[in-house]
């Protein structure tokens, strides 16, 4: 069992969980993920690692309640434990001295991008951070990011805080000499970032988290088209060359179970009511 040591509310439906998982913590690096399962009937879901404390033997993940399993995780409290936590999975992110690195984190993924930004800063990079979200209320990890990054920019879809949308990125990357862009967040945001950096040929890596089951290369559900090749996000990623990714295919594949996901959530909520 993996105990929830701390649970911190980051936004109305976003929590940061710290799990006791000593062996995983000893190995986990920025860019890697874990797969968790909450009970005997539970599905396996991937969550990107947002922090590691080797001394405490803990790993942190941020979770946005969207479907059944994320909502169920959101209902757990400090001191509760989950039966399954597998990791670290995936390849560690490329952390080296690139020069100036732009780290873009959208929504809940601002938490794991912070883990990468920290490592990139420690590797001697000048780190420019961008935190984005749908609205002001959904912005997370602003404090951490402002401490870690040399500069920080904020953007929201509705303009309730910072820039409206991410069009400002075009100006930013034209004005500053950026050597690398690292982005984590919703697929549409990743696509927009990659489209923005493409004309300037700025190397851009994006983290892809398609539907996964085992997370170790067995099912192939997470296959993505990258530069015309079929790759598995769980073992070849999560980082991919943003200018080569077939985002439209990924967006379509992510919608495969939209209906079932709604059914599962309603079924779970009804079950919770009867308890």
């Amino acid at each position: 069992m993996y105990k929830i040591e701390t649970k911190r509310k980051l936004a109305p439906t976003i929590n940061l969980f710290t799990f006791s998982a000593e062996e995983v913590a000893a190995k986990a690096k920025p860019g890697q993920f874990v797969i968790i399962r909450l009970d005997e009937d539970g599905e396996r879901i991937p969550l990107t690692i947002a922090n590691v404390d080797k001394e405490q033997g803990t790993i942190s993940v941020a979770c946005h309640e969207v479907g059944k399993t994320t909502a169920q995780l959101g209902s757990l409290k400090e001191g509760d434990a989950i039966p399954n936590l597998l990791g670290p999975l995936g390849k560690p992110a490329a952390i080296e001295k690139f020069g100036t690195v732009l780290c873009v984190g959208g929504g809940v993924m601002a938490a794991p991008i912070h883990f990468k930004a920290k490592a990139l800063r420690e590797a001697g990079n000048y780190v420019i951070g961008v935190v984005g979200a749908a609205t002001k209320d959904h912005l997370v990890f602003l404090e951490e990011m402002s401490k870690t990054c040399n500069e920080l920019y904020i953007a929201t879809d509705d303009g309730s805080e910072g820039y409206k949308g991410i069009d400002f990125l075009k100006d930013l990357i034209t004005k500053k000499k950026i050597d690398r862009v690292v982005a984590e967040g919703p697929v549409l945001m990743l696509k927009a970032v990659a489209d923005t950096t493409h004309p300037l040929k700025i190397p851009t890596v994006v983290d892809l988290i398609p539907t996964m089951i085992d997370g170790m290369g067995m099912c192939g559900a997470c296959r993505v088209g990258v530069g015309g090749k079929m790759l598995f996000a769980c073992v070849d990623g999560l980082e991919f060359d943003g200018h080569q990714v077939d985002f439209d295919e990924l967006l379509a594949r992510l919608k495969t179970y939209t209906l079932q996901e709604k059914v599962a959530k309603v079924f779970w909520e009804e079950g919770e009511k009867t308890i």
Partner: peptide, 12 residues
């Protein structure tokens, strides 16, 4: 994942 038992089992 026992999808045949969906939605009781969470995997569709």
């Amino acid at each position: 994942m026992k999808s045949y038992d969906f939605p009781k089992a969470g995997t569709p």
